[in-house]
Design a binder for these strands. Structure first.
Lengths: 337, 337
DNA sequence: CTGAAAGCGCTTACAG
DNA sequence: CTGAAAGCGCTTACAG
């Protein structure tokens, strides 16, 4: 693998002249330029960007940490980020934290040592050490979808409180009274906010004594266990809200289990662009966010900040949820009970 | 941002001693070690891995180019790759080629200049320039799911020919005779192989005169257009095979369009782990591959090769497809016609 | 229009 | 057990 000196030698010029040709910078005579280009082609020379990165302290690289790219919510966010990065000339290090603070911190330190210019993170927890570690290195961060106990960090997130309020109210308007929320962990802002919105809608409707929140994790197994408990309790809910699509997948495993003899007409309402897979359920409501745009916006805010490090206004972008009814048959209400 | 010299000065030692502490290499007296560790902590020192990468010509970084991470098939492959990379201490640059040779080549060159150690690529085309460019730099490549006109490159792929054969035969056994294949492009190996398997099953059953292959692209719009053409043709098929899940999504847009008055009992058969979304269709068959394992295996073959550059045996791993029947109601056969 | 020197942050190889 | 020198591949800043 040839380096800039090999090319320079072959073309009979100095390395800096090769550099000028590569970067189209300053004047190089046509004759010298073509000699250099010939040498580059003959040697299959590919400039090593680690050199400039060392000097300039800019790698044009960003770290992207989501909890699990397998979740279609994050998949689409990541695609938005990647498209923005492609346009802006950045490259992406992709990491999955699996909702683990340890893994998140480990990735953070590795990415820092790789000299990423900035971070896009869906923090595993409202109080994440990773962010402080990054801030000590004065690298910009934009949070994805989740708030944090730190007012100085940019964030692009969905309006989880209002989303939960709308979804709950929608079920209440359909005459549901026994509505249960299968939620994520108390340490994740989206779960906290979704509980808040759910509570507000229940209270407004005079149903506060029916408020029933299960706190679990954003994964299949937790959804399964919470649904099992909720449905085997004394008073069976007529509607279940799953706080994210992974919880919904677990809940569906319970709802579709014939042996448990659970009535088919329990309504399921789901956050976060559920793979329509689940439209198999007779009564389904989904509420989702513009995830691709979330990725695009977050990435562009980060690049903006990298280009204008002096700007200090903190950006808090809150995107609306959109209600999507996907009942495959019949009305999603508890009238048949 | 402190560097190794700052730490050395603060601890009253030479930079090389700091290096030894960071890397736990060779003997450092306990006293000196603790002085260095104290200085590291006080200065929030994070070692810059670009330095070692420059010297060693190893970045511990790999380039991953898939066509579109939004496709759940690739999402899962990517997750497998990422898990393998995490364990092996590698970091991943994620790129989407969108089935474009130009974008693939552009990414390839950028990744080369970033000094990735190796590549995992789902090539956009059976004759991809990108691969030659990479081979000139003597960097290892493992192909994901797609063959190429080059016998020397490792590949981990699904057995598309046999998968298509099985899926077609399954439909034939259900008494379907008018089966149409909505396929990808003639330049992508999975499309070529799926056409081959489909043809073999049709011929074996004496249905070669019914063989009907549409060549398009692996995207929604192409699936929509091909399905439209197939269903509005003279003889309506009783079964449609979609060569990948994006084509299936387009086809479903046609099948579910009431205005076109297309009979509901047309059977749909789909490759590549369709988001079960589509189980809404009354008659659905899906055939899928172990995608997560594909990612894991491909990554591990790449790391193996990086650790043993001398080994030259080419690996061609072919993974089996698995048939999954997902009819939501009634038998998926054309008996009702 | 072209070039020699210095330095980005590390670690290998050698010396003591 | 500790350290001084050299070099990985570039480009900035200066000189001519």
């Amino acid at each position: 693998m040839a380096n800039i000196r090999d090319v320079a030698r072959k073309a009979g010029v100095a390395p800096i002249t090769v550099s000028r040709v590569i970067n189209d910078s300053e004047y190089v005579s046509a004759e010298v330029r073509s000699r250099v280009e010939k040498a580059i082609a003959e040697l299959n020379y590919v400039p090593n960007r680690l050199g400039p990165s060392m000097r300039s302290k800019r790698s044009n690289t960003i770290g992207l940490i989501v909890t699990d790219i397998t979740n279609p919510f994050w998949t689409t966010v990541v695609r938005g980020v990647e498209d923005a990065a492609y346009k802006a000339g950045y490259h992406l290090f992709l990491c999955n934290s699996d909702e683990s603070l340890e893994k998140e911190l480990e990735y953070t330190e590795l990415l820092l040592s790789r000299q990423v210019d900035g971070f896009l993170i869906a923090p595993a927890n409202t109080s994440s050490d990773s962010l402080e570690v990054i801030q000590k290195q004065k690298k910009p961060i934009v949070l994805l979808d989740r708030r944090i106990n730190n007012p100085d960090i940019d964030v692009v997130r969905g309006d989880s409180e209002r989303g939960a309020y709308l979804l709950t109210k929608y079920l209440i308007d359909l005459k549901h009274e026994k509505i249960v929320l299968l939620n994520g962990s108390q340490t994740v802002s989206t779960a906290i906010d979704r509980a808040e919105g759910y509570r507000r809608a229940m209270t407004e409707a005079g149903l506060e004594e029916n408020t029933n929140i299960f706190w679990g994790e954003f994964n299949h197994d937790s959804g399964y266990l919470m649904a099992l408990e909720a449905l085997q309790g004394e008073t069976r809910p007529t509607a279940i809200i799953a706080a994210n699509n992974f919880i919904a997948i677990g809940a569906i495993r319970v709802l579709d289990n014939f042996e448990l003899s659970i009535p088919e007409d329990i309504s399921l309402a789901v956050f976060d662009g559920l793979p329509e897979a689940i439209a198999v359920r007779p009564f389904l409501t989904a509420i989702a966010q513009p995830t691709y745009e979330m990725g695009l916006m977050a990435a562009n805010i980060l690049f903006e900040r990298l280009n204008n490090p002096s700007k200090t206004d903190v950006k808090k972008i809150i995107l609306p949820f959109e209600l999507k009814i996907r009942s495959s048959s019949g009305p999603p209400n508890p009238g048949t009970h």
